[in-house]
């Protein structure tokens, strides 16, 4: 999966949840959405982009949401 597309998708999800004034809810919203709707290969590709490219292009809220929910987002 092309990383730049996944980054764009994750950032757009983040933009929506960022309007919640509660930061915990923002992170939960982003990670929860990705967990509920992304096929494992997409999550895997985003995680490796974060690991290998330091999450190049990702919004800070995406990185924070993923860091806080890494286990849950990692496919079995």
């Amino acid at each position: 999966m092309e990383a730049h597309k996944l980054v764009k998708m994750a950032n757009e999800i983040a933009t929506f949840f960022e309007s919640d004034p509660d930061p915990a809810a923002v992170h939960e919203g982003i990670a929860g959405h990705i967990r509920r709707f992304w096929d494992p290969r997409m999550r895997r590709a985003l995680l490796s982009h974060i690991d290998e490219q330091q999450g190049d292009g990702c919004k800070p809220s995406v990185l924070a949401a993923i860091a806080a929910n890494r286990d849950n987002l990692t496919p079995a």
Partner: peptide
């Protein structure tokens, strides 16, 4: 238990070979 690919994701996954 894992969600599958949506149509646009299928297209991307087809191009990347998975």
């Amino acid at each position: 238990a894992e969600p599958g690919l949506r149509i646009p994701n299928m297209f991307d996954a087809a191009i990347d070979g998975s």
